[in-house]
Design a binder for these strands. Structure first.
Lengths: 136, 136
DNA sequence: ATAAAGCCTCCGGTAACAGGAGGGTCAACC
DNA sequence: GGTTGACCCTCCTGTTACCGGAGGCTTTAT
């Protein structure tokens, strides 16, 4: 059995985060010492790692909860997991598109700005006027 | 002089948001009626629009505050604006890269998953094991 | 006169933790 | 046996940029 600090070192998750996951019931501590210290075993460490990776893929805590229960259920059809993954993928794709547009437009503005002592600034002009047309 | 509702219609910003900008001192109401109703003039509406567009470019409230003061200062050098913009651009670029990597990896996993009745699932396997190698 | 719409302030909630206060516990060392 | 220092606990507050709603005036229209 590991203390929360040991679990932290093993998973590279901050102690605070592990405590938080316990608190919200995402990954519960395996047990407690008589003094109330949280204890974790190999299995719970593995779950922590699982959540960590899912979080890195932008899955929310609630989605992690869902994935974790599928992960625990060894008879689950892979269809269920794929469904969640695909909808998350669509969301990521949209974020990606938005961010790309944004970056292009801002890039265009920065290029147009001389960036010298003169007060005239295409960036501020654009912000004060309206939407921006990116250069082709 | 416009009521907050009129300003909202003109700028397409929610009333709640305009009130919030007043509260945090980003775009103050021009004045108040004897009854305490907020009033906005053309100039403050323009500032609201400015903030709206800057926010669409992912500038935080604090950054908007900075841009707005440069916007108000007609003698400012465009260098100052460009500097802020470029650092924001770098941040956007990094977000973009991260998101791209993420999407590719998740795409790879989804492709590998049969998505049928069988319980074997490459997605969960990957999450339980470690980092993912994207397909070339 | 009254009803509807609009305005106000204040309170609570959101996501996913981080930081810190105040206090108990444990192992080692002298 | 006492003490130091590392570690643990819970509870509270703060973060970002608002949204929703309660309770209560004000204005406008009928």
């Amino acid at each position: 059995m590991l203390t929360i600090n040991d679990a932290s070192k093993r998973t590279n998750l901050p102690v605070k985060t592990i405590r938080y996951y316990d608190e919200v019931g995402l990954v519960l501590a395996t047990g407690r010492t008589p003094a109330g210290y949280r204890l974790y075993d190999d299995r719970s460490c593995q779950k922590l790692g699982f959540v960590q990776r899912a979080r890195q893929f932008n899955f929310s805590i609630e989605e992690c909860r869902e994935l974790l229960s599928l992960y625990e259920d060894h008879g689950r059809p892979s269809r269920d997991v794929k469904k969640i993954t695909l909808s998350k993928l669509a969301l990521l794709q949209k974020q990606l598109d938005d961010l790309t547009t944004l970056t292009l437009e801002l890039q265009t503005l920065a290029n147009q700005c001389t960036g010298d002592d003169r007060p005239d600034c295409p960036i501020l002009n654009a912000f004060s006027a309206g939407p921006i047309d990116a250069e082709p």
